[in-house]
Design a binder for these strands. Sequence first.
DNA 1: CGTTAGGTTGACTTGATTCAACAACAGTGG
DNA 2: CCACTGTTGTTGAATCAAGTCAACCTAACG
Lengths: 253, 253
Amino acid sequence: MASVSQIFDRTVRKFETREPLDAADRQALYDLPFDVRTIDANRYIVREGDRPPGATLIVDGLAFRQKVTVEGARQILSVHIPGDFVDLEGSLLRFADHNVQALTRCEVAIVPREAIVALIRSRAKVAHAMWIDTLIDGSIYREWIVNVGRRSARSAMCHLLCEFARRLEAAGLSKADGYELPMSQEQLGDALGITPVHVNRVLRDLDREGLISREKRFVRVPSWEALRKCGGFNENYLHLDQVAVDQPLAARA
Amino acid sequence: MASVSQIFDRTVRKFETREPLDAADRQALYDLPFDVRTIDANRYIVREGDRPPGATLIVDGLAFRQKVTVEGARQILSVHIPGDFVDLEGSLLRFADHNVQALTRCEVAIVPREAIVALIRSRAKVAHAMWIDTLIDGSIYREWIVNVGRRSARSAMCHLLCEFARRLEAAGLSKADGYELPMSQEQLGDALGITPVHVNRVLRDLDREGLISREKRFVRVPSWEALRKCGGFNENYLHLDQVAVDQPLAARA
DNA sequence: CGTTAGGTTGACTTGATTCAACAACAGTGG
DNA sequence: CCACTGTTGTTGAATCAAGTCAACCTAACG
């Protein structure tokens, strides 16, 4: 359970890597009104078609975006970690075009739409940092299109495992030799556009060949290099080192 | 060949549907310095890893984003029409994480990065409109993930045909009963994550069953309703009616 | 005219799905 | 404490959608 003062810590830290903020910007973020809520795993945070009353910030736990076809097949679109706003779309667009669900039990802070809109109107740097964030989200979506469109199930799985590892590591949530995979095989299938049965077989094969070794959902990776190669993983698209482009790099040291 | 004064017309019009601009905002857009260039079909506009010298605006013709896996398979990520900036990423992020290619012969206007950055810093409403635009791009990427991940080739093709139709129509570039499909079957395959041979068979079957009828690349659609149903197409994700959310709708009439 | 890019079709192969059974495990309640 | 229930994971056998390979056709173009 995060204390009240820590609610926006991760978000502020993330935004500062996008755009240098001044004290007033930081304060505006910390001054945002919010309502903390705990959401059980698998419960919906946002539903397609809804106009959510505010923007939801993940404080603790993981969430994912998802869309269901008319035939009933679910496709997971992205996974989000603490510090991420999961439905800015809801405050800036007319309605949500997809669903957001809690992946694990989540603690979220709901910020009223008016407060988000006011923040954006008054603090240009914060708005800019948020914009950069949506650009990076877009970049990750593009890579996922490649993953489901052009990689074999095996290769796509390795790519996904690399992405999670890298993002969890950047957020300080993983060990060096592996990590607790927070998804069921069915959810992995929905992220990769394959069936859960096939997920199982792919993981089994990767395990047999020594690319990973599993204990329950903990995935140990003997050679990141080998996994990276199998997935054709290049982390550039995550833009983990993103800093504002019109500031000299030296000024940020 | 668009005349100089028309270069930014489509962009201004599009942005105004995102956020009400005032005269100074419009003027700032029209005052942007630019360099017009003609680019042959298939030539690269932006290359992955590059830091482009400016943002590229499509004035005439079509372009597409694309990424190539280590195995050499190409995945098309999006298609862009006149009025779209195709590489804002290049001005706001550190480097391009994907390629942009001309789909048809294109006329583009290249706006120096410094001018784009200055525009964003000085005209908050323009920046906001651009941000909304990247949110909508994100929404389209999400739908494409669903398309390649969870729809059959047949259904994905119908969906893509509906999307093009709707976007071309919204931009005033198509007839009611069909349109000139601007892509080769190989490119369609790269957009759907399937082989060109399979594209051919899917199109043949759709034609035989009367869902479409083809003359060269012109696609006639006897029943949009039927095509829509086959693709599970719901245009919400295009956010074609997007207007600023903190403005009363009546104020825009 | 030859050359090239795009489109078309058939025969065969394969990666992934489907269906079905069962094992492991957590939570629940008697 | 154990039976009951639901969820997740595992495996085999049969099937299918899409890929591969290869031939050939057509139109555009220098």
